[in-house]
Design a protein around this nucleic acid. Structure first.
Length: 541
RNA sequence: GCCCCUGUAGCUCAGUGGAUAGAGCAACUGCCUUCUAAGCAGCAGGUCGUAGGUUCGAAUCCUACCGGGGGCGCCA
């Protein structure tokens, strides 16, 4: 689709160079003003360059709009200099019509795609919750985020692989096994063990040997298959489930440590093996192999990340972790540096903690204490789509407090229904139209010029914004921006629906047809957006 | 003590250099003989934590302070 903000950016650039403005070191923006009275687009170009020309911003802006480049650009109705020196663009009405026609032609398949990430192989690792208990709503939060981010990146042309790292070995697995054996023996788990009810169920089913590690491994494998199931039904599919045990058993950890050693980043102290991470930007040195001979979690994790870059050759790796893993970031980056991998290729996004407000009390998610609110609980109450949009209603950086009662009982608190209702209305409207013999010309020879109502203009603008929204969401790793856009689009549609009848008496055929085309374009945009956040476009409500 | 995140309407949150800060919920008031009223409209609600600074321009960037969350293991 033709992107006006890009066209205008190029135009302004041409105009500036025509009058000899040096663009070295400055960036100007072409954006959509918040207020309609400031035009369809606006640029701050004169405001960021006026000093170089020792002129007032408004004088410079005047010179810009007087250029040949501007005179020869056919799509703008008028220009205006406003405020301190903005140049506002008022486009010809046709600029929206042609875009809507393009949306109709591109359909769900191609609308709002981009080649931003062409030829870039990226891995997104997320959830990776320990297989010591069912997924809780906090895990679900980041699952929704990571999956939506992956979808957004795919839409922008990245070659994306989604991965779940399974921590299926180590102390926590033994601890889980110990808790199960305690339950099996009819006693309570140790204080630092796992207290949840599911442990009792597992204990009843366990028939293997009475040894911590064996019981723990068995339980972890059961739990991981339940987690898999639970994520699949949440609409989150992982391409790869990578086992921590397999990394350790493959000898990759020894290999990695040997490589770090050969580069001079390893030393021995107090019987343990240390990484000289301080030299590489970490706050302190880290242990790789404990004095008892076991590797640390970090050692395995370094081997794992080395595998991502040097064995599987990802150009970029995005890890989404909970903020409680903050301490790992500097160490992991230091290790990458030591291995000769540019640490900027590893992006670690930290999701702030999610807690739940239940009857005026904040409940922290803890598998050990057994206080988790299972993801499945929320999904059963309000469905996958509503849950996923709910999870994407705030940014990753915000520690969220979810009011459980409101989320599951008062569905109006959840914007998902608002968005889905818009789609249900569209579906029903298109069905009614076709029953009455009103359909869109397959050749898309549709005249949209009757569309001039403020509601129609607003709706067209919102639809055509999606390609930009998707790119920004990808670039900023901020898929929740798609959810924000969806709500705005739904609002525009509901307004349009209310004021601009399609099938009512007294709407002539030309107007009805053009409105119908707009409705179909809205549907395309909505479906693309809903798919990106992993929500279903329902046909009925 | 050090590091990361955060503080925006009564509540939950958008908005991270642009002009007059937005939405949903909650409250109040209107709108269905008309394509789904799970909707639309109106009204009301704000020292953008506080104080300085940078800038033509700051909720947004910088500094300090205050409040909240997380981290600083030979746990994972």
């Amino acid at each position: 689709m033709l992107r006006w903000e890009l066209q205008l950016h190029a135009l302004v650039e041409a105009a500036l160079s025509e009058i000899g403005v040096d663009l070295e070191g400055v960036e100007f923006a072409v954006e959509r003003p918040q207020v309609d009275s400031f035009g369809d687009f606006s640029t701050n170009a004169a405001l960021v360059t006026f000093k170089k020309m020792s002129k007032s911003p408004r004088d410079l802006a005047n010179q810009v709009i007087g250029t040949k480049a501007f005179a020869e650009f056919p799509h703008v109705q008028s220009y205006e200099i406003a405020g301190p020196g903005f140049i506002n663009f008022y486009m010809k009405p046709s600029h929206l019509y042609s875009q809507i026609v393009e949306v109709l032609a591109e359909k769900e398949e191609n609308f709002a795609r981009s080649d931003l990430g062409k030829d870039e192989k990226v891995q997104v690792e997320f959830v990776s919750a320990n297989p010591t208990g069912p997924l809780h709503i906090g895990n679900g939060w980041w699952a929704a985020y990571g999956d939506a981010l992956s979808r957004v990146l795919k839409r922008c042309g990245y070659d994306v692989s989604k991965e779940y790292y399974v921590n299926d070995t180590g102390g926590q697995i033994r601890s889980l096994g110990r808790s199960i054996l305690s339950r099996k023996a009819g006693t309570s788990p140790p204080e630092d063990g796992y207290q949840g009810r599911y442990v009792v169920d597992l204990a009843n089913r366990y028939e293997g040997e009475l040894e911590d590690e064996a019981a723990g491994r068995w339980a972890a494998s059961v739990i991981i298959s339940e987690i898999k199931q639970s994520l699949e039904s949440f609409g989150v599919h992982f391409d790869v489930w990578y086992s921590q045990a397999s990394i350790e058993e493959s000898g990759a950890v020894e290999e990695t440590i040997a490589e770090l050693d050969s580069k001079g980043y390893v030393y021995e102290n107090d019987g343990a093996l240390w990484l000289k991470s301080t030299e590489l930007g970490d706050a302190r040195d880290r242990v790789l192999r404990k004095s008892n001979g076991d590797f640390t979690y970090l050692a395995g994790d370094i081997a794992y990340h080395r595998n991502k870059f040097l064995v599987r050759h990802f150009d970029r790796v995005i890890d989404i972790f909970g903020a409680d893993h903050h301490g790992q970031v500097a160490s992991q980056k230091a290790a990458m540096k030591a291995l000769g991998i540019d640490p900027s290729r590893l992006e670690i996004l930290l999701g702030q903690m999610v807690s739940v407000m239940e009857s005026n009390e904040v409940v922290k998610m803890s598998k050990r204490a057994g206080t988790s609110i299972p993801l499945s609980f929320v999904v059963e109450k309000i469905g996958v789509s509503a849950t996923r949009i709910l999870c994407l209603s705030s940014s990753l950086d915000k520690a969220t407090v979810l009011d459980l009662n409101k989320a599951v009982e008062r569905s109006m608190e959840n914007p998902a229904f608002y968005v889905q209702y818009a789609h249900a209305r569209i579906f029903s409207l298109l069905k009614n139209a076709s029953e009455r013999g009103l359909t869109l010309d397959a050749s898309l020879e549709v005249n949209l010029s009757p569309l001039s109502h403020p509601r129609e203009i607003r709706l067209m603008k919102d639809i055509t914004m999606l390609p930009e929204v998707v790119e920004v969401a990808a670039r900023e790793r901020a898929p929740h921006k798609v959810a924000t856009w969806l709500k705005a689009l739904a609002a525009s549609f509901h307004g349009f629906y209310h004021d601009c009848p399609v099938l009512a008496e007294g709407v002539d055929l030309t107007l009805a047809t053009s409105r119908l085309a707009l409705v179909r374009a809205t549907q395309i945009a909505l479906r693309v957006g809903l798919d990106l956040v992993g929500a279903e476009a329902v046909e009925e409500m």
